[in-house]
């Protein structure tokens, strides 16, 4: 199963554009498995440095995670103000506290307007963008969260997110040859 659309200018990414490995996660801020993967991805980023580019796309499942959508909207609001990754990391670091209080504190911490966030949540300013990402995930074969794509191909994991390290290493090694 192939990622479409590929990573582009509308995506939030960490790492160099010419990194040999691009890892895309479709994730939900309230999903406990995504919370578990968050720490592993940080380790992978340390391990592979500039060899790895990481991209996060939203795939909230509000039917079972009532805070997934407002959390995603909060991250997107911060992203529109060039602070996506600070928000993304704070939300996962505080996954058990997701809710309006956390979003307000986060936005204050990032020197952004609490009123502006409330307006964005009320008006659903970022919902179309989030839905576009969900739709791209559905078309790419996302069947739950988190789902990962490495250089555009879906990664099938057997049990642990740490399994991501091997295929990433292979891609980086292949690029060095």
């Amino acid at each position: 199963m192939t990622l479409h659309p590929p990573v582009g200018p509308d995506d939030y990414v960490q790492g160099p554009a010419d990194a040999p490995a691009t890892l895309v996660e479709y994730g939900d801020y309230q999903c406990p498995y995504c919370g578990e993967a968050f720490g592993i991805i940080k380790q992978l980023q340390q391990q592979f440095g500039d060899g790895l580019r990481f991209c996060f796309r939203n795939f909230p499942i509000p039917e079972i995670h009532p805070q997934a959508l407002p959390a995603a909207e909060t991250a997107e609001f911060c992203g529109a103000n060039d602070k996506f990754w600070q928000a993304h990391d704070t939300l996962y670091d505080n996954q058990e506290r997701l809710g309006p209080e956390l979003y307000t504190a986060l936005v204050r911490e990032l020197d952004l307007g609490v009123d502006d966030l409330e307006t964005a949540l009320r008006e659903g300013t970022y919902r179309n963008r989030i839905q576009d990402q969900v739709d791209s995930g559905l078309r790419s074969g996302v069947n739950g969260t988190p789902t990962f794509f490495l250089n555009g191909e879906r990664v099938a994991l057997q049990g642990s997110f740490a399994e991501l390290a091997d295929p990433i290493e292979r891609v980086i090694e292949a690029a060095r040859r």
């Binding site: 039917e63 079972i64 078309r139 996302v142």
Partner: peptide, 14 residues
Amino acid sequence: CGDELLVFNQALPL
């Protein structure tokens, strides 16, 4: 099954 049906639920607009 839950995951599968939820994914179809997500896809209803499409």
